[in-house]
């Protein structure tokens, strides 16, 4: 059986739906880190059957907001001295910027680099965000 040791200090992103780990790895730009990072795929899970896990050595300033948009089942563990110091629940963020583009081809954000849209979650039960410039709704998809 494949064994991966724990980390002394850092972040563990757990309970990722099997198959989503690589997408999250790319979305968080983890390939650009210089510290050790491990992506485990198809690990046995009591809760999910199979799951993916990402372990990042050292606590780094990573924007984890995107995780709430991908899978609300994900859990984040902050590890210090080989122990889980903090467990963070994932929430769908109210405000998002820089993670995705407005879907409206007529929006100023599609042509002007000065215009970076801030998106606000619309409370309609779907993961849809209103663009601060054109007000169109964009549904987030990984």
């Amino acid at each position: 059986m494949l064994k991966v040791t724990g980390i002394e200090k850092g972040i563990v992103i757990d309970h990722i739906t099997s198959g989503q780990g690589l997408k999250i790895f790319e979305k968080l730009n983890l390939h650009k880190l210089s510290t050790p990072v491990v992506l485990l795929m198809n690990v046995s899970s009591n809760k999910l059957g199979k799951k993916d896990i990402i372990k990042i050595q050292d606590y780094l300033d990573i924007d984890l907001t995107v995780l709430g948009l991908i899978d609300p089942n994900i859990t984040i563990n902050i590890v210090e001295n080989n122990e889980i110091k903090e467990k963070r629940d994932i929430e769908i963020p109210e405000k998002v910027s820089g993670l995705f583009k407005c879907k409206n081809p007529r929006c100023i954000t599609s042509v002007d680099d000065y215009a970076e849209a801030e998106f606000t979650l619309v409370p309609n039960g779907k993961i849809q965000y209103r663009c601060s410039y054109c007000e169109e709704l964009t549904e987030y998809k990984l």
């Binding site: 007529r106 100023i108 002007d112 000065y114 215009a115 410039y133 054109c134």
Partner: peptide, 14 residues
């Protein structure tokens, strides 16, 4: 007046 939606909002920021 601008054909792009949100352009006047951008302009107002400057």
């Amino acid at each position: 007046r601008h054909p792009r939606e949100g352009a006047p909002l951008l302009a107002s920021q400057f």
